[in-house]
Amino acid sequence: MGGLTKDPAFRATTFVITDFETTTPTGYPAQPIEVAALALRFEDCGWQETGRSSSLIRPPAFAPVTPADTAQTGLTAEQLQQAPTPAEALGALDRRLTDGTPYLLVAQHPATEAGVIHHQAEHCPMLARTDFLDTIPLAKHLVPDLPNYKLDTLLAHFGIPHPPDRHRAYADVDVTAKVFLQLISAADNHPQLGDLATLVKTAGRAAKANRPVQAGLFDI
């Protein structure tokens, strides 16, 4: 293996591939209806799974599951009636993280994931302070000249089978993890990606809670 996977900071980090399915109510931020996560860590014997989690989530009344949501995910309002609330589901996921362990969340264009976590920060404070790696800029850096960098395009490029339940959270986490591992394998032999700090500089996205707040122009 190359320099990246020999970097002590990279080896100390647990990478948590994360995906949400959501509703998108008018006038409100996206509301989660399903979450899945897969935790991976690189050790001497290679990649090791250190945990996995998935949960349906009952959306609030102002964000009902629509026919379009059902068409995309297969999830119906009836399936979610007895599911945990967003606070319960995100709180349970947050409690799976260990204080003091370095984490990075991994997602394909993590704007939705970052927004959901930020709006539930009261219930998932560790997740809310955890930065992201975005597979899209990493793929652009390592696999130039693809027609686009959608997840399905990356699956085809790497020969990863398209899951039958695509757009369910755990299926998307599973294939995103496979793409991530392919990208890390390519990065491991890339002369410009020799350590975790460079990887984060290339594809990192700061959690909203970690972004600096600009002081007002007239603050004293």
Results as ranks from 00 to 15, higher is better:
residue 23 T to R: 02
residue 24 T to W: 02
residue 29 P to H: 13
residue 30 A to L: 04
residue 31 Q to I: 00
residue 31 Q to V: 01
residue 33 I to N: 02
residue 34 E to G: 04
residue 36 A to K: 05
residue 36 A to G: 06
residue 38 L to Y: 09
residue 39 A to N: 03
residue 41 R to C: 12
residue 43 E to L: 10
residue 43 E to D: 13
residue 44 D to M: 07
residue 49 E to Q: 14
residue 50 T to G: 13
residue 55 S to D: 08
residue 56 L to V: 03
residue 61 A to M: 07
residue 61 A to F: 05
residue 63 A to H: 03
residue 66 T to F: 13
residue 67 P to T: 09
residue 67 P to R: 15
residue 68 A to T: 08
residue 74 G to S: 11
residue 75 L to F: 10
residue 76 T to R: 12
residue 77 A to D: 12
residue 78 E to C: 09
residue 81 Q to F: 01
residue 81 Q to I: 13
residue 83 A to H: 02
residue 83 A to P: 00
residue 84 P to V: 12
residue 86 P to F: 02
residue 88 E to F: 08
residue 92 A to L: 10
residue 93 L to D: 01
residue 93 L to M: 12
residue 97 L to P: 00
residue 102 P to Q: 05
residue 103 Y to I: 07
residue 104 L to I: 06
residue 109 H to A: 14
residue 111 A to E: 10
residue 112 T to S: 08
residue 114 A to F: 12
residue 115 G to H: 15
residue 115 G to I: 10
residue 116 V to H: 07
residue 117 I to N: 04
residue 119 H to N: 15
residue 119 H to T: 13
residue 120 Q to I: 14
residue 121 A to W: 13
residue 122 E to G: 14
residue 122 E to F: 15
residue 124 C to P: 12
residue 125 P to R: 08
residue 125 P to H: 06
residue 127 L to I: 10
residue 128 A to N: 12
residue 130 T to E: 03
residue 133 L to C: 04
residue 133 L to W: 06
residue 134 D to L: 12
residue 139 A to P: 00
residue 143 V to K: 06
residue 144 P to D: 01
residue 146 L to G: 01
residue 147 P to E: 09
residue 149 Y to N: 01
residue 152 D to L: 13
